[in-house]
């Protein structure tokens, strides 16, 4: 059922997501230890998302897959936070960065700009559709990511808030 091809794809996806997470995390100057944890969490999260979106019989959409990927990142982040005495978001946020729907967001803006300059009715309907499809996907993925990652804080508030103690 789960082919070797899919396993290789998931691993490759996780590996490159880890590189992406390290690079996007380093912009916000994280502690050295947190950098490697965020790479690991990004690999797990992004790999899981790829699996949920592409595995046969699952094939979820991007929003619910992102939610469960973020949920797994949030839950895994807590024990690490306790171990190196850092707030969990220091490495859970960077590991979400490869999943941020940036491309959907700017495509929505571009569709809006094209809608203003185009004239025909058919054409403008296409751009309005593109705007809503991309914009709402971006918004929903963003909320799914953040809600997913913060569920662990609601489940274990004591552990989450005292991790830097």
């Amino acid at each position: 059922m789960i082919s070797l091809q899919l396993v290789i794809e998931v691993i490759g996806d996780g590996f490159f997501a880890a590189i992406a997470a390290i690079g996007f995390a380093i912009i916000s100057n994280p502690p050295r230890k947190a950098l490697f944890i965020s790479a690991f969490l990004a690999a797990v999260g992004h790999g899981l998302r790829y699996f949920l979106m592409h595995a046969p019989y699952i094939e979820w959409n991007i929003i619910s897959s992102s939610f469960f990927a973020a949920l797994s990142i949030g839950l895994l982040a807590l024990p690490f936070a306790k171990a190196i005495r850092c707030p969990a978001e220091v490495f859970s946020f960077p590991s979400l960065l490869p999943m941020i729907p940036g491309m959907f967001a700017y495509k929505a803006v571009q569709a809006l700009a094209k809608f203003i300059v185009c004239t025909g009715y058919e054409e403008s309907m296409i751009y309005i559709e593109t705007f809503f499809r991309n914009g709402i996907t971006a918004l929903f993925v963003l909320f799914a990511l953040v809600v997913g990652v913060s569920i662990s804080i609601f489940l274990f508030p004591k552990l989450a808030f005292s991790s830097t103690r």
Partner: peptide
């Protein structure tokens, strides 16, 4: 500018 180390 963002700085997670300072946050921690």
């Amino acid at each position: 500018g963002l700085n997670f180390e300072m946050n921690a």
